[in-house]
Simulated assay, not measured.
Amino acid sequence: MMKAYIVTVALFALAFSFASASDPDPLQDFCVALKDYSEDSKSAIFVNGKFCKDPKLVKPEDFFFEGLNIPGNTDNKVGSNVTAVNVDTLPGLNTLGISIVRIDFAPYGENPPHTHPRGTEILVVLEGTLYVGFVTSNSENRLFTKTLNKGDVFVFPIGLIHFQLNVGKTNALAISGLSSQNPGVITIADAVFGSTPPINPDVLTKAFQLDKKVVEELQKKFGGDN
Rank of each mutant, 00 (worst) to 15 (best):
L143V: 08
P201G: 06
Q164H: 00
T89Y: 10
G109F: 12
P198W: 05
F193C: 08
S43I: 10
V101C: 13
D104M: 02
V132A: 09
G97P: 02
S80P: 01
S43V: 02
S99Q: 02
V85P: 08
D62G: 03
N226S: 04
V192E: 04
V214F: 11
I186Q: 14
G223K: 13
K35G: 12
T145V: 14
G79P: 09
D62H: 14
P71V: 10
A189C: 02
V192L: 15
I100M: 11
R142A: 09
A191Q: 12
P24L: 12
K53D: 11
K146V: 02
A207N: 02
G168I: 01
F222R: 05
D36H: 13
D62N: 10
G109M: 06
G97W: 10
A19I: 00
K42P: 05
I161H: 03
P91K: 09
F65R: 07
F208Y: 15
E110W: 04
F51D: 07
F144I: 15
K221F: 02
T136Q: 08
A191K: 10
G177K: 12
E140Q: 11
A13W: 00
G92H: 04
T205K: 14
A21S: 11
C52Y: 15
S20L: 13
I199F: 11
F105E: 04
L96F: 06
S38D: 08
D88S: 03
G177C: 08
A174R: 02
A84C: 07
I103V: 14
G92E: 08
K169Q: 13
G79K: 10
Y131L: 00
V125A: 01
N166V: 02
V153W: 14
E66P: 05
V192P: 05
A4C: 01
K59L: 14
V203N: 03
T129G: 00
P112E: 05
K169R: 10
T89M: 10
L178K: 10
V135L: 14
K150M: 06
L126Y: 13
K212I: 15
F163Q: 00
G119Y: 11
L27P: 03
K35V: 06
S41W: 13
I158V: 15
F134I: 08
R118G: 04
S17M: 09
F105C: 06
F65L: 11
N69F: 04
S179H: 09
F65Y: 15
V58E: 12
S43T: 12
V47L: 12
E216I: 11
Q219V: 05
A189W: 01
E61P: 02
C52S: 09
A84T: 05
T8N: 09
I158F: 04
E217I: 06
D54A: 10
D25Y: 09
F46Y: 15
D211F: 11
G177V: 13
N111I: 01
F46V: 10
N69V: 07
N138Y: 04
F18G: 01
F222Q: 06
K53C: 08
Q28E: 14
I70A: 12
K59G: 03
Y108K: 13
V124P: 08
V153G: 10
P24W: 11
P157I: 06
M2A: 15
